[in-house]
């Protein structure tokens, strides 16, 4: 702990500096929560003949999500609208991201566009895609 004589004359630059340091730290700490990141974050699982894609889409209603699939490319599109009741509202904190988003994911294999199941619950989107019948590895019988 530093002791200074400035306390006696009523002004301590060290106290002032510490206060400023604290203020800057507080502001910087807030940045980590709102740092740019790909939206939405996705997870990918693969099974034997299917692949499951999950995405975190909180606050978006299922009919606002656009899902398209072509060969092995899955595209996820949508918009998240800011919600405020009236123009007079004042923001205190804004960490949640708004705006349009689009993500394109390359799947490990071609999928059958007719056999895609998408579920949405509690802000989590889950899409299950299957490999087309024709692309599946065929078991070949060995003649004895």
């Amino acid at each position: 702990m530093l002791l200074s004589d400035f306390g006696r004359i009523g002004f301590d630059p060290f106290v002032e500096m510490r206060r400023m340091q604290q203020e800057v730290n507080q502001r910087l700490a807030g940045l980590t929560a709102s740092a740019a990141q790909e939206f939405p974050p996705i997870n990918l699982w693969t099974g034997e003949d299917s692949v499951a894609v999950a995405a975190e889409l909180p606050g978006i209603s299922p009919d606002e999500i656009g899902l398209t699939v072509r060969e092995n490319i899955l595209t996820l599109k949508g918009t998240r609208e800011p919600r405020t009741e009236d123009e007079k509202s004042v923001w205190h904190r804004r960490e949640r991201a708004y705006g349009t988003f689009s993500r394109t994911v390359q799947l490990p294999f071609r999928v059958d566009p007719e056999r895609v199941e998408a579920r949405f619950a509690n802000g989590l989107l889950e899409v299950e895609l299957h490999r087309p019948e024709a692309d599946r590895p065929k078991k070949i019988q060995i003649k004895g």
Partner: peptide
């Protein structure tokens, strides 16, 4: 996790929006 939150103030209320995907 610490969820992301929005806080805004209207004339009568303070509204808090918290993102918690996967939580029923």
């Amino acid at each position: 996790f610490v969820p992301r939150a929005d806080i805004y103030e209207t004339q009568d209320n303070v509204v808090l929006l918290v993102d918690m995907p996967g939580v029923a």
